[in-house]
Design a protein around this nucleic acid. Sequence first.
RNA 1: CAGGGUGUAGCUCAGCUUGGUAGAGCGUCUGGUUUGGGACCAGAAGGUCGCAGGUUCAAAUCCUGUCUCCCUGACCA
Length: 605
Amino acid sequence: MSTRNTSNDSARPSYLNAAAGTVELWSQTLIPTTREAPGDAKMPSHIFLARAGYVRQVGAGIYNYLPLAWRSLKKISAIVRDEMDRAGASEMLMPALMPIELYKDTKRDVDYGDLLFTLEDRHGRKTALGPTHEEVITDLMCGALTSYKQFPLNLYQIQTKFRDEARPRAGLLRCREFIMKDAYSFHIELEGDAGLNAAYDKMYQAYTNIFTRCGLDFSAVEAEAGPIGGSASHEFMVNCESGEDTILVCLESGYAANVEKAEIGERVWSFDVAATSKIEKHHTPNMPGIEGVAEHLGLNASRMLKSIVMRTVEEEPRWVVAVVRGDHEVNEAKVRDAVGVGVALAPEGEAKTAGFVIGYVSPRIADTVEVVLVVDPDALGEGAWATGADEKDHHITGFNWSRDMESHIAKDRIKVADIRHAHAGDPSPRAKGAILEERRGIEVGHIFKLGTKYSQAMGLSVLDQNQKKQDVIMGCYGIGVSRTLSACVEMSHDDNGIIWPAAIAPYHVQIIVIKPKAEGVMAAAHTLAQELAARGMDVLIDDRDDRPGSKFKDADLVGMPVRFIISPKTIEADSVEFKARRSDGRAEMIDRADAIESALVALGS
RNA sequence: CAGGGUGUAGCUCAGCUUGGUAGAGCGUCUGGUUUGGGACCAGAAGGUCGCAGGUUCAAAUCCUGUCUCCCUGACCA
């Protein structure tokens, strides 16, 4: 089973076993295929994994992995282990069960909220099922890391994780219990061979190797690092139309980013646009939303300003008003970067007390309330805007930045920055004149530069060579192993079933035996299977005494890359029928002597 | 968390409006005829209709409560 040591055997491709492959009989394992899919299964990966007998649901977001699924999962894990080990990481295993106190220092018992599965033991102690292991490993390191000389260090595990998702869905794609590889690296510095940046780059390369070896069509994209700020983060996305995540790409420069993170290229803007009309006030009862007002005023939403009231997350919070064009959405992370400190949507009650008329706020609120005003470039450049009147049930038209905000502009109190969500058609941030295009993907890997977030919170520090106490710098690197399985099906299937890449197919080859009770047929199948296995291929023999049609259908469903058919006819002709799952049409007769070579060629392509 | 649905045989579902003690297809088992893209005939097994309570002579069906699972959204290091 192991794919290690492949470097010692240059003749054998990495998708094959280094040692002999396994041979198993369909009749002696459990592959409960069904003609019909569960009524609620919508996504191909869910439908086919269920119909082909890979998984059966136990509860919401909880699944049995039957023998075929488990074989694939083990192959994915083996590739992950191989690449992680090559990259210098060491495998270990942390517990799934942990005292909730571990989460107190980092406040994730609160921040993670309901996502954390919690339970009580017989003594009434609060306990959690691990959703990820930053706290556990940081706690471990507090007692185990004693010298800077131990750096760099990279530890990983492959383990079942638990997250109480608000809404599990789409089969294995969003589960409450799932298999994940999580790795954590430790450093005393950012730069240099032993630094975080080098480890991050190594992991980036390892992930690229892993998903390439798994046979996936994927993209590495820039991602939002969350409240850590400033640190880099990349997601590895399987390219696929049905994916939950939206990514934006610039084909010219190769820039690719999650839509949550994507920067927008340079836009021309100026405050200095002459007013084209006077301010007029309009009665707009019960219309706090942009769409209602636009319709009422007979305007397009893009002629309006959307002003969102936020507050900084610091000792003495400041009010922030983020202004974007009416048809755009404010990106909280971008506002955070523009302001330089974390921000959050303002609690409505407190904002009202401070003088904001939520739903009817305009940039002019800066005249009466002390605010940090941040404006997106697309919300400038017109002579007349419609916006709130800072008065309940009223909006104004004819708002002009240079005329109506003159004093603020003069004092340089308005910050212009990219603070909105990007979308398809926006200018590329990396190539002049190019535009961003939209793609969909399924996140299967995510790497982070954590920095000192956890080490600071939990007191993980060591003395450096100058005997100075330093917070340990960390990185963390995750792969959704079980999600990779379903993402692969989502990416690679046809109307009849799954089409596995050779490297993670449960078996490389399926031999369909027709009339298995006829003399010599099963023996011929076994002989072929042994020859294939000797060359490193895993073989499944469909030995069921069933009609050919249903066996062909099942073979399409379960999706092994190479199929042989053996029957009294083929034995008579000293031939065998051969078909690659990927190819259209029927099987073709080939000489028995060419069977092994044909399989190897098909698997390699 | 909000809104909407759902739960009946191993699987996919009908029956519920209008109460009378449970059905189909697929699958499984037996026998026979078959055997190259989910065969046919005959027979058989298999369900306390999610759970608890209520109404009624009688409840899968009506009422109340509760749980499950699903969908849309919010949420998703």
